[in-house]
Amino acid sequence: MAYVANIAGVDGELKVEVKPLGGDLYQVVIDGERDLVVDVRRHGCCVYSVLNQGRSYEVDVDERPDGGYSVLVQGEHYHIDLVDEMKKKLLSILGEEMGAGTGEVTTAMPGKVVRVLVSEGDQVKKDQPLVILEAMKMENEFKAPCDGVVKSIKVKEGDTVEANAVLVVLEPSE
């Protein structure tokens, strides 16, 4: 089975092939050249004991809310986006049809809306603060990612929002 991986902090895509060798053994080829044989035992939903050339690793593989994986090895964290090569092709076709970029400003953290600094129809500049959100005694500003017009505001002051919620939708200017 072939996959395509994007890893936070690593440039470019990596191709990863997985071949089962029977039992717990798998051959994994990264980018056609780095060849690993791993002995993989799964514990519970997402803890793996991995042996590679006699070295033992405890690896946690957790699905992240945004669809990628959070992988923890010996205290080092990796954010890995991994997609089946076939599905990736399907996605890229779909992506083109649906049109990219929605101008949505979302929040990665849950919090309480302290202030909304713009109104619908406002012309905004890149990096202009739009909404201030508070969580755990700390205030965070959400800024316009580009110049544009405020199409709609999805929150009001005092609202509590979940992670990944849309705060403001912008109509980017050409």
Binding site: V18, P20, C45, C46, Y48, V59, V61, I80
Partner: peptide, 27 residues
């Protein structure tokens, strides 16, 4: 990063196992 290949290999095997056993109820 030091353990990139092991991390990537395990994530890939994880996805492979998930795809091979889609009907299995995960804990």
């Amino acid at each position: 990063p030091r353990y990139l290949d092991v991390a990537l290999a395990t994530a890939a095997v994880h996805l492979y196992l998930e795809e091979m056993a889609p009907k299995r109820e995960a804990p």
